[in-house]
Amino acid sequence: MNLPNILTLSRILMIPVFVIIYYLPAEWSYVVSAAIFGLAAATDWLDGYLARKLDQSTPFGAFLDPVADKLMVAVALTVLIESHASFILTIPATVIIGREIVISALREWMAEIGSRGSVAVSYIGKIKTTAQMVAIIMLLAFPPGVLWAHLGTALLYVAAVLTFWSMILYLKAAWPDLFPDKETG
């Protein structure tokens, strides 16, 4: 167990904490839950940076990091869908969660056939993740109907468009493996 792996595990442990705090009947609950989510999002960047900088990358960390990310985002979006009870927020949240499932399955399958490199994280994925995390923080911090929540929803749409675009790029890269040419394969 090393520091990057501890940070990744802490991200998973923060999930129930931000959910519980979000639902507390207190004025500060939204802002504190958003701060906890923001801290968890920061550890996502920090654990990867430290793993590379300290040469502490491990198979366990490589497995757990994307799991922690997807759990954190899916739980936060689920809480927000319930809290906002609006199809306007549900649409981009569903696109984001659905894409994560598709790409996770694609990466697993590509790894099984030895072609995982063709579905590696792209630059557009990093922009998408940033937009998504900022949108979720805004939506957690401000209750439905507040201007900042509307801006968070708009940013979530930006993240959903980038999410869909990056999924198309991943599928395009994997296309030759998904549908091999019968003459060459």
Rank of each mutant, 00 (worst) to 15 (best):
K128P: 02
G152D: 05
V121W: 04
S122H: 14
I137F: 02
L147S: 05
V146A: 13
L147K: 11
T130M: 11
K128I: 01
G152C: 14
V121N: 01
P143Y: 10
M133R: 00
T153R: 00
V158K: 03
Y157Q: 09
T153I: 14
Y123L: 12
W165M: 02
I168R: 09
S122M: 11
Y157W: 14
A141H: 03
L147R: 09
L147E: 07
M133E: 08
V161Y: 01
V146Y: 05
A149I: 04
V134E: 12
Y123Q: 10
P143D: 12
T163F: 04
A173Y: 14
G125W: 00
V161W: 11
G125D: 07
L140Y: 08
L156D: 09
I124H: 03
Y123C: 04
A159E: 01
Y170M: 13
A141Q: 03
I124L: 14
V134C: 05
I136H: 04
L140S: 11
L155D: 04
P143G: 15
H150F: 15
L151W: 04
K172V: 07
L151H: 06
T163W: 01
S166W: 00
A160F: 13
P144R: 08
A149N: 13
V158N: 10
L171P: 03
W165R: 05
L151M: 14
V121I: 12
A159V: 15
T153P: 01
V134I: 15
T163G: 09
L140M: 10
A149P: 04
I124P: 01
A173F: 07
H150S: 14
I136L: 12
L171K: 10
K128A: 00
L171N: 12
Y170L: 12
A154T: 05
K128V: 03
I136G: 02
K128S: 07
I127M: 08
L156C: 14
V158A: 08
L139R: 11
V146P: 03
L162G: 01
T129V: 09
I136C: 10
T163A: 12
L155H: 03
A154P: 01
V134R: 13
I168C: 15
I127V: 08
L140H: 02
